[in-house]
Amino acid sequence: MFDNVCKFLAENFSADISTWLLGESIELTELSPSELSLEPIRADALILQQSEQVVLHIEFQTEPRPDIPFRMADYRLRVYRRFPQKRMQQVVIYLQPSRSQRVQQNVFVLERTRHEFDVIRLWEQPTEIFLQSPGLMPFAVLSQTSDRLETLQQVAQAISQFSDLRLQSNITASTAILAGLLLEKALIHRILRRDLMQESIIYQDILQTGELSLILRQLNRRVGTVPQEVQLQIQALPLVQLEALGEALLDFSSISDLIHWLQQQPTD
């Protein structure tokens, strides 16, 4: 869930993210990991973006992982193989406080090979940085603030000044989800408008992903293993139809019941 929010912010507010991490506002586009190697690489928590001059590699992490240094070195070499002319900025961003020494680690060493990368521990970053642009506001509560609730209220006030309703809803939902790492849900909902959250793209996406996962588990218990092609049909359903399937499956006794239900659904 937190990975999805961070990816959403990086993809939709790349100028804000690049100003923070690169020191200059650059419009970045997604770089697919499949462009870098014939071998698949674990892609969760990974953000790769590029412009004509630079590749930005970000790893958002809630907890430190032992394989992070190797991943950074691995991706650096893959990017160099594909784009030898481009410079590359690599940043691991830790979202919540940790006493592990791994959050300090910014180098990969193997015999005579040494590769360095940047590490940002959000809880050490000045809060003011994240109050200056919409794409950074959801991170403010995780920063070096002495009062997280007051910071959340500052963000809510800033969001209320946006004239674009979609921007309001997306930043509200992103802020609420990330704030959930450190604050109780009831406190968050007391400050942020729930109606705005529910209208956001990221909120709907997370809601649909959760609903889909639950329904597939229920179907596997109810009618047995669902064939891959049928799973793909279910994944393509909008949230409203997913919710309807969640009720209808209680009456299913076989895969044929599921297939028949799918055939009855309207298509665009």
Rank of each mutant, 00 (worst) to 15 (best):
I17K: 05
T62M: 00
E30M: 08
D44S: 15
Y94L: 00
Q89N: 12
L77N: 12
L77I: 02
Q61M: 04
R87W: 05
S51P: 01
P66T: 10
V91A: 04
R87A: 01
K86C: 03
A45I: 03
E30T: 11
E27P: 06
E52Q: 10
E39A: 10
R42D: 08
S34D: 02
I47C: 02
D74A: 03
A45V: 04
D67N: 11
Q96P: 06
W20A: 08
H57K: 06
R76S: 07
K86G: 10
Q90A: 15
E30K: 14
Q96T: 12
S51L: 02
L56I: 08
I47M: 01
P97A: 07
R65T: 03
Q85V: 03
V79P: 01
V55M: 08
P84F: 09
E39C: 07
Y75R: 11
L31S: 11
R65W: 07
R71D: 02
P97W: 01
M72W: 14
V79F: 12
F60P: 02
G23C: 12
R76P: 03
S18H: 02
S25H: 04
L28M: 13
G23D: 12
I41S: 13
E39N: 15
D67Q: 00
P84M: 00
Q50D: 15
Y80N: 13
I41E: 11
D67F: 03
Q90K: 07
P33V: 07
E52P: 08
P64H: 02
R76A: 04
Y75N: 12
L46H: 09
L95G: 11
M88R: 09
M72S: 05
Q85L: 00
L48R: 00
I58C: 05
D67I: 00
E39M: 12
I26V: 14
Q49G: 01
R87I: 12
D74Q: 03
Q49V: 05
E27L: 15
R82N: 09
L28R: 09
L56H: 15
S25E: 15
R78H: 05
P84T: 00
